[in-house]
Design a protein around this nucleic acid. Structure first.
Lengths: 212, 212, 212, 212
DNA sequence: CATGAATGAGTTTTCATTCAT
DNA sequence: CATGAATGAAAACTCATTCAT
């Protein structure tokens, strides 16, 4: 499955091959356990070439994160039509998200797990992407309230907590769906929509659960 | 800051000191980056003693996982009274969970992050614990339906998905609460109850969201 | 000729063996070309032990410099009786110096050549030692003038330049004597005394050479 | 700061640019620490071209030594008029020498330090140059004796030692003068003439210092 | 029981050097 | 001629692990 070893390719192509190999290795082994030797071999090049193009293990990892974060963001963005109703947007976004994470489990692992556990430099790059997504979901919640002609009795902090919980639930479900054979992206999205949209609806109708 | 160095303690005590040091180190540095040197020093013992008692880095890590998983499970179990109504049980369990993760961030990091990224052996040990918890939540959902005299139109798979989503959301919120100053365990639990219980209620009243 | 490989020695002894090996290797190959592998092998230990005791190549080199500078200084000091007349002191000091450099060519190379060409950190350590020696020689020149009941028409700067030239000449002669078979320490010292003492005498008698 | 990159220059010119870059790099970084990459970049050419013209790092270094040794020799030769009295010749030669070393510190470093510490091949090339100079100084000493109508009671070995000491002192003073701001070539030369010529004079007048 | 002494195997990284175009 | 693409070999350094005392 490793990239076929061909000689003398343009730099841009080789760089992508290296990033492919790196994402796969980092995703499966983890940042620390991944060795530059393994990455180079999987990419079908010698180690010095990896260093020539990507500088260091850290830089290589950062490049992986940037590429994968961009790709995931782009996939979700492309799946959503901002003209449609809020629930439809959320549904489409979730499907795009679960589809992408299912098709790129290593990239998702790099973003979700590896990047968060190996230094501020990496964590902050992912945090930025995540904030984009949380902001998007927050907008949808507010839009949903408006569409339902409700004035949600929710403070800003509460909406943020909800968006955070929704995104967190999505992240967890992605891991679960990846690990559970037979669970499709569509099913994962439906489960979450059921759970979340109904809950939001109830909240907006003024029936929150309150602690005893 | 390490345990004070005292001579000749019973083996069980020494082992706990070692596990304390190991959990702290694994939690903060990650499994790969943690060095046996650092752990031994933090525990106030010599390295060979660590090997004598715990065998290897792998075994030491496994011991950490077992201890921490047990402690977390126990904390949640102790916080819940199985005689109370389902929503109260969930509320109490969530509070116990968020309290524990806030007070033992390194242990939680070991379970939630480290154990899942370093080989099947560790992942499966945590998965077992997690399944216990998901099973507990599943029971609560079913119990809630029964209490409400509803026949939930939910298949087993759907309930499982919901429980999974709930647990996943809790895990995400734990990380979020730990990282966000000013968010208490109680607040995290309230946010999630609001989100989840209302959603479950709507579902049971037969108003699920359905895909377009 | 390498140190015989014996097992389990006290740290202090091993450290000296390592320094011996390092001085020899640095002296013969130069700082950059010397490899830690070679040093460890010559010392009869494994590389990790070298790092355990001496930390890094830089620290190891610095330790060599410190040890060798101390030994050279001590050898010269031990060879001189500060109660004797100035010329006798200079003669004795030079003999001790040439003897030492002849017997420890690698140590001398480390101090004279290697330390000066690999970063301020090392250069300054040798510079400190050299300044000690230049100061000593300066004292002797002044003492010589006093003994001769002369008031040397020499400014401080000029005396410094002379001391510098004398020390420089000694350093060069050391290399020359080491490289020229059949030149003894005594001969090297005699050549320099002839050259220097007579010159100083002339200067003090007020017969300097003056530029055209 | 590197040579401006221009296309299609005659080989001889390109070679000089490469040697300029190499001398500078070797002089400042040292032989081992200098990288062919840096040299090629500083010369404004691609690495393969350096190899095409100069063959290898060793050959490149040797070419530097040859060029710099020739230039230094030539500078001294050009500064001296062989018709003038011996002391004047020495004075002029020293001034030329100190001037050259001050103006070409990297070249001087290559000759004085680098070449001597990286293998017999390079050392011997510098040694040859140095012997030329020592021979020249030896001639001057003999000529000085003749001019003074003295029959120096000095054996050949002694004269050689004196010349060696003088040259060595000059080399040391060159380093000292380069490192000490405010010391001009003229001052360095004056210091050494004072020291040396007076000493020689005394010797020839039959007042050598003799060991106790 | 406890530890100072020791290492094999691996890590990231760099460098002189060569082709194919 | 000139260069972008590529690498074999080795460097400094680290770490989990084990004896001998």
């Amino acid at each position: 499955m490793g990239t076929v070893k061909t000689k003398r390719m343009p730099r841009a192509v080789r760089e992508q091959q290296m990033l492919d190999a790196a994402v796969r290795t980092f995703g499966q082994r983890g940042y620390m356990a991944a060795s530059m030797d393994e990455i180079a071999e999987l990419a079908g090049v010698s180690k010095p070439l990896v260093y020539l193009y990507l500088n260091s293990k850290e830089d290589l990892f950062a490049a992986c994160i940037r590429r994968e974060a961009g790709a995931l963001t782009e996939a979700v963005r492309a799946g959503v039509d901002r003209e449609l109703p809020a629930d439809r947007q959320l549904w489409d976004g979730l499907r795009a998200f679960f589809t992408y994470t299912a098709e790129h489990p290593d990239g998702w692992s790099v973003l979700h797990i590896q990047a968060r556990t190996h230094g501020e430099r990496f964590a902050s790059e992912v945090a930025a992407m995540r904030e984009d997504i949380v902001a998007f979901v927050t907008q949808l919640i507010v839009a949903a309230a408006r569409e339902a002609h409700r004035d949600p009795d929710l403070g800003e902090g509460e909406v943020a907590g909800l968006a955070e919980a929704l995104v967190g639930a999505a992240e967890s479900l992605a891991a679960w769906a990846n690990a559970t054979p037979g669970v499709t992206a569509r099913q994962a999205a439906a489960t979450l929509m059921n759970f979340a949209w109904a809950g939001l609806g109830s909240l907006m109708e003024g029936r929150p659960w309150s602690p005893p």
